[in-house]
Amino acid sequence: MSADGKRAVSVIAFIGSVFSPWYRWSGRRDPENHVCINVATYGPGGRFTMTDRGRSALRQTQDSMTVGPSGLHWDGRQLVIDIDEVSAPPIISRVRGQIRVTPSAVTDRELLLTPDGAHVWRPFAPVSSISVDLAAPGWQWDGHGYFDANFGTRALEEDFAYWTWGRYPARGGSTCFYDAVRRDGTELGAGIHFGADGTAEETPLPDKRPLPRSLWTVRRVTRGDPGTQPRQVMSMLDAPFYSRAMVETTLDGEKTTGVFEALDLRRFASPLLKPMLAVRVPRRARWTF
Score class of each variant (00 low, 15 high):
W287D: 06
L113Y: 09
S93G: 15
R267S: 04
H119A: 07
Y178G: 06
D30P: 01
A239G: 02
T228K: 11
R94K: 11
A180W: 04
A105H: 12
D238G: 08
T203K: 12
D133R: 15
Y23Q: 02
R59K: 14
E110N: 10
P126C: 09
W216F: 15
R219E: 15
R220A: 07
I99Y: 01
T257K: 01
P226R: 12
R183S: 10
A245W: 00
G145Y: 03
A13R: 06
A149L: 11
H34D: 07
L211C: 04
A57L: 06
T49F: 01
T228C: 14
K208I: 03
D159L: 12
S70C: 06
T114D: 05
H119T: 06
G198P: 04
I91V: 13
P204D: 15
A88N: 08
E85V: 10
F268L: 12
L156N: 11
W216V: 03
E187T: 14
G68A: 12
W74F: 07
K6H: 14
M50N: 02
V67Q: 01
G173T: 05
A3Y: 06
G145A: 10
S270T: 11
S10I: 07
V132F: 03
L273W: 08
Y178D: 13
R283G: 05
G185H: 14
Q229S: 15
R284V: 03
F19H: 03
I92N: 04
Q60D: 08
P212W: 11
V39L: 12
F48V: 12
G258S: 02
F289D: 11
V80S: 01
V233W: 02
T61D: 14
S235R: 14
A125S: 15
M246W: 02
W287Y: 14
T288K: 12
R183L: 10
T250C: 14
G46W: 00
G143L: 05
A125E: 02
T51E: 09
R100W: 02
A40N: 01
L58H: 03
D108W: 05
P115R: 14
E85G: 06
G224V: 04
F194H: 08
L263I: 05
A190S: 06
